[in-house]
Write a protein that binds this DNA or RNA. Structure first.
Lengths: 207, 207
DNA sequence: ATATCAATACGCTACGTTCGGTATTGATAA
DNA sequence: TTATCAATACCGAACGTAGCGTATTGATAT
């Protein structure tokens, strides 16, 4: 799990510009696609630990060596596969800040319920303990976009006068994102959206 | 990783009442102790993944079979070892609610910085995705006590009149605990305690 | 009291299996 | 000619199991 990026380690840049090609047979783009697709599927199905390189190779219809030609190890492969799967985040605009917040949480809820998102989250947390660069990929792809959406909503609210001009947006985002993550982890409570609505209302009495 | 408790699976209840003992040689309490100690040490040192049963047995000075006589698999052993390691949580009482909160966070910060706590946290999150009963052990031992401390502080504040009587304590605890966890995960910011102070102050303008 | 018995734990060694990762080989595409 | 591909064998680490002989205990028979 303590792995460097992997892109640097392999001579052929599969996803590269494609213009300057060295000698010899080029990598198969079809294999690239099949590998990443199979890896992502299996990761979503069984999680990181139970994902085996043999299974990925089998599902992709590719030999195991073909995997290792592209990625130095399992960690790098999974990182690349999940990296590609960035879910797009919508920036809601309902007119009111509270409405935007609720809508954003509503949209996020399904993501937090999906096993794949939780698995990525788990990977991020566990890799944090190991201080790997892994964490940065996940943070950038999965957390930062949602933080951006939060910040955007708050900024608009500020301009509309719904939020005090001196409010620390970064701090507010921390509180909101932290509460959302916590609700996702916390066992057995009321539905996420409802609870988050109450959290929003509580914080907003202090706006 | 999908494992039932383990206590039920093995006939001898090592930690049982000790009064009614059937025939046969009893389990060695020294071995019990050595096993759990070695497992906890190794878990803190190398994490769950890299922890091997062979290493535990070697460090405990015990045969591998002795491990499997007690615990059905690695997951159960680690669960038992970490279960025993409940860190005690102090309930601060500085006189003011804000002071109590800050003090509690200050004490908690060192725990959040230790690799073992982070590893347990990671295990909890990843096991949540797998829906294992594992998660409940960790939640009960590591999260719930701190939630209790939070709730206690807030309750005292309520009685002192520092907090509105109709404040939803459970919800407040969620926000505070969630923010703290988030800060622990979030890469590279200011020191946890300082940031938590600001979060407390922000929320408390809405008391 | 003492020997025996049944039951269980213990350490040891070995084994079967899975899986990550490497090496080799012959064929194939550019 | 040169690198990729698939197939296969291989190595080593690790989980978990099985069998052996031995040690320790409670119950029982003499």
């Amino acid at each position: 799990m303590n792995r460097s990026n992997g892109e640097e380690l392999h001579p052929r840049d599969t996803a590269g510009d494609g213009i300057s090609r060295g000698p010899g047979r080029p990598r198969s783009a079809a294999a690239d696609e099949a590998i990443l697709g199979a890896a992502l599927e299996l990761f979503a199905e069984v999680g990181y630990q139970a994902l085996s390189m043999e299974a990925v190779a089998a599902r992709a219809g590719v030999a195991k060596t073909t995997l290792y030609r592209r990625y130095p190890d399992k960690a790098a492969l999974v990182a690349a596969a999940t990296d590609r799967a960035r879910p797009s985040v919508e920036f809601p605009d309902t007119g009111s800040m509270r409405g935007d917040m609720v809508e954003l949480f509503r949209v996020t809820e399904s993501a937090l319920d999906s096993p794949m998102t939780m698995r990525i989250f788990a990977l991020m947390v566990s890799e944090f303990a190991e201080n790997s660069e892994f964490r940065d990929v996940y943070w950038r792809n999965f957390v930062e976009p949602r933080r951006q959406a939060f910040a955007e909503i708050l900024e608009r609210g500020k301009q509309r006068g719904e939020l005090r001009g001196d409010a620390d947006i970064d701090l507010l985002v921390d509180i909101l994102a932290g509460s959302a993550m916590y609700q996702a982890i916390r066992p057995g409570t009321e539905p996420l959206t409802e609870r988050m609505e109450r959290i929003i209302d509580l914080i907003w009495t202090a706006l």
